[in-house]
Amino acid sequence: MIQEKLTQLTSLFQDLERALIAYSGGVDSTLVAKIAYDVLGDRALAITAVSPSLLPEELEEASLQAAVIGIKHELIETQEMDNPNYTSNPTNRCYFCKSELHDTLKPLAIARGYPYVVDGVNADDLQDYRPGIQAAKERGARSPLAELGITKMEVREISRYLGLTWWDKPAQPCLSSRFPYGEEITVAKLQRVGRAEIYLRQLGYQNLRVRSFGDTAKIELPSEQIQEFILKVNLPELVSKFKELGFLYVTLDLEGYRSGKLNQVLSLSK
């Protein structure tokens, strides 16, 4: 099954001939970049959008992974923070983020002679509330993983099959996803959340989120790690660190980590 999906993915890129990849450094877009480079060579270009919602550490990882793959990698700056439709954090915030991204990438692709902008949206993403997917589609972007029905699990399996050492890299969506809808997003808040998550990763916890509710930080960990976390981590030291970052209160979500948890308010409001 994995080899079949890989063959289909390879065939798709052979048909594209040239492709510009919207490359975040996540496991999905990195697999897309890998296959694009293997098939197209110098006719593939990976571009990473740099903004306050991307931590420097994430950008460094993306650059290192691109170097390992061999694909040409460039950076562009996006200005979503200048758009009040984005910073006011409405329920369709992601639409304005992806609009800014693809409104920046598409003219660049045309100017460079790339007929397609390709992203890393996978089949599972289509089952969640992702208004950004609509923005990308409206601007003609293609999503090879989703088109071929390749799920997140299959992305990881194919990546491992190809020997990509980051195949099990935790998902790391835009830092703006850490804020409940309606809470204004600022550069300072993005940096505060990002630094808090980096601190927890340095303690050995990789699959996590730090949600920001005003001056309160809510830590989400996989439910099976919560008890160990409470017993193992120096909690007063952790609280002190979070306060240094600018939080007044620090809490632990006893339900545990779940991707897209802040979207549950959308179903409750229906």
Rank of each mutant, 00 (worst) to 15 (best):
Y161M: 13
D168G: 00
I21L: 13
S53W: 05
S24A: 06
F96D: 02
L64D: 11
Q202I: 02
D215K: 12
K243A: 01
L252N: 11
D253A: 03
D103R: 14
G132V: 07
A33V: 01
N234H: 10
E154Q: 14
V265H: 09
N89H: 09
Y257H: 12
E61G: 00
I110R: 10
L40M: 06
G256D: 10
Q202C: 02
L145E: 04
N92K: 11
L248I: 01
V39H: 05
D15S: 14
S159C: 03
D82G: 02
V32I: 15
A188Y: 03
A135G: 11
T165C: 02
A123R: 10
P222W: 00
L235F: 02
E147V: 02
Y129C: 09
S212D: 15
N234M: 02
Q191F: 11
G26K: 02
T7Q: 09
E17Q: 13
Y95K: 03
I226Q: 10
T78K: 11
D168C: 01
K34I: 00
D168M: 05
A22T: 03
K106R: 15
G182Y: 14
N207D: 15
F247I: 08
I150Q: 06
G120F: 01
S240N: 12
S267I: 11
G41Q: 08
Q172T: 12
R195E: 15
E58W: 10
V50Q: 12
V155P: 03
T251L: 09
D82E: 15
E220S: 10
K232Y: 03
S29T: 04
K5Y: 12
Y129H: 15
L190I: 13
